[in-house]
């Protein structure tokens, strides 16, 4: 018997992306540059996060023409973003053949209370998280892959680092908890208890966790791998830099060889200017994409 859309198939797809770089692209040409540079997948969208930030207003799923163009341009997997809680945008992307859906806080949430029930879909989902509770709630809803939220479109790594460290340190914390303590922890952090038990037993999340939100240089990518990320998403960092091809290649190599510091030094030479960054304290509360969902 053939079974599609099983947990193993959905989570397994993310396992195959490990150690790789997933790049944001807005057209076929960028998708081909990303593929040639060694990206393991591309994220098709209408605008990269820094442009969404600059444009303001409501950010929605990309025009299907763009997604279709990217789907036809490359042989690597194509991911696409749907608004948080927007069941129909997600269904449309699934129908179009997107390989993974990012239910993403980079777009303006469509539902301020509920995320999509992702268990119901054949296509797998990736969601953002800032801590263990948020990670496990998303898995509970059916996410097959996680990524740190970071702060998208800022070129500032500090939030992604905070979120990765938070998840890792909370996983370590619960290792030593008794079962009764774990139940209270579940209550306090809003974590599904059964998933907490599983994490306690295995010492890691049941799905792959990538870094995202602020990665702008090869060293940034390597830092996130060092902190335990399974791979990285690079949004604005590549096509907002001076030399996208070179940046893309260098970030791919730095992710694979993240502990080879001489190599990373070489990769970082004469790269040209990285994207312009934003210091967190200059962001107003309503500009913080990471706080758009719990």
């Amino acid at each position: 018997m053939t079974n599609v859309g099983t947990n193993r198939v959905k989570r397994g797809m993310a396992e195959m992306q490990k150690g790789g770089v997933i790049m944001d692209v807005v057209n076929a040409e960028q998708a081909k540059i990303a593929e040639a540079a060694g990206a393991v997948a591309v994220m098709a969208l209408e605008r990269v996060p820094s442009d969404i930030r600059a444009a303001g207003g409501v950010a929605r799923m990309a025009d299907p023409t763009i997604t279709e163009e990217v789907l036809n341009a490359v042989s690597i997997p194509v991911m696409a973003k749907a608004r948080i809680g927007h069941i129909v945008e997600a269904r449309v992307l699934e129908a179009m053949g997107a390989d993974y859906i990012d239910e993403s806080e980079v777009l303006t949430p469509a539902d301020d209370l509920y995320h999509i029930d992702k268990n119901d879909f054949t296509v797998p989902f990736v969601c953002g998280c800032r801590n263990l509770g948020e990670a496990l709630r998303r898995i509970g809803e059916g996410a097959s892959m996680l990524r740190t939220k970071g702060e998208p479109g800022t070129g500032n790594i500090v939030e992604a680092v905070r979120h990765m460290r938070e998840v890792q340190s909370q996983i370590r914390q619960i290792q030593n908890m008794a079962k009764d303590e774990l139940m209270v922890y579940a209550k306090e952090t809003g974590s599904p208890y059964e998933l907490l038990l599983q994490v306690q037993e295995e010492g890691r999340l049941p799905v792959v966790n990538f870094a995202a939100g602020g990665i702008a240089t090869p060293s940034d990518a390597a830092l996130m791998m060092e902190l335990g990320a399974d791979g990285v998403f690079v949004g604005s960092g590549i096509f907002k830099s001076d030399n996208p091809e070179k940046f893309a290649r260098s970030i791919v190599e730095a992710t694979t060889h993240y502990q080879d510091y001489e190599l990373i030094a070489k990769l970082s030479k004469d790269l040209g200017t990285a994207m312009t960054g934003i210091e967190m304290s200059t962001l107003e509360d309503h500009d913080r994409m990471q706080d758009r969902s719990e």
Binding site: T2, V9, E94, A98, D99
Partner: peptide, 15 residues
């Protein structure tokens, strides 16, 4: 043949 069984939504498990 690459991706011969289709895209991700066609991915499957079987005995």
């Amino acid at each position: 043949a690459r991706n011969a069984f289709g895209r991700q939504k066609e991915s499957f498990e079987a005995t």
